[in-house]
Design a binder for these strands. Sequence first.
DNA 1: AGAATCGACCGGTAGC
DNA 2: TGCTACCGGTCGATT
Length: 298
Amino acid sequence: MPELPEVEVVRAGLQPWVEGRRIADAAILHPRVTRHNDLSPATIEARLVGARIEAVSRRGKFMWWVLDDGDAMVIHLGMSGQMLVTERAQTSNPSIARRSPALTDPRTSPHLRSWVRLGDGTTVWFVDQRTFGYWRLDARIPVSDSAEQIPSSLSHIARDLLDPRIDLSFCAHQIKASSRMIKAVLLEQTIVSGIGNIYADEMLWLAGLSGARRASAIGLTRLVNLLRAGQFVMRRALEQGGTSFDSLYVNVNGASGYFARSLNVYGRRGAPCPRCGSLIKKKVIAGRGSYYCPSCQR
DNA sequence: AGAATCGACCGGTAGC
DNA sequence: TGCTACCGGTCGATT
């Protein structure tokens, strides 16, 4: 599933195709795409048409189109969402299949959920097998500590670990104020965002911390260290995601989310810990399947 | 009011 | 082979 680095790859890949362009046509094909909106699918289509996309922004795993009418089109990929681009008047696209079997032709996909066509004929397609992803049309609201704006529905989503304005010390203090297990706090998105189950386990492993520890029982220095570990893991994943795909359509494809991650613990039950050689264990922590080294994570 | 918890959503697949 | 249980991220309802 797309985690923060993968969403950033999709955002960056989408940006040059849509920035500065006007939406000429839009279609919501499946009602679940717009389930979090008060507006009907038809109304959302109508509101999109004519809007100009000024930028593609992101916070955590949420990205959004900054529209010139003051709104934001929030896009969440959920578990399986893909944003794909085709150029004007492409009648068929054998190059997609040839480059990678994982890449689908959106126009024939049974999981095509919605699309927008831009003024120059470029079309952006949203394909989402499990329909956990969604589009949500929102007003933009100011962020208190800077000149930025975010969609109103994301007011509870904190800055993420790739955000240059994140304050790790401030986050550490907030985390320490919680009596919950540290892994639950990492997954919560309200103090620091963009961390999913995989990256939570990986950063806890790198920091040598058990996800079951109460956040309040961890020292501030160790909490900052944990957040730095998260930054390290995500930056490295982003580098790999940015280089493992070539050209045109590809880095706009959710399939890029399946680039080889170098994982130390996640999914490796029974394998030796890369740091100490003990066998990786799996158990439920904070309601999630969690992989950890029983001897070097405390 | 706010924090924590829980069920719902979906379909591929692991495990029987 | 066919069936069931499970998994994941987020939201909204409930405690």
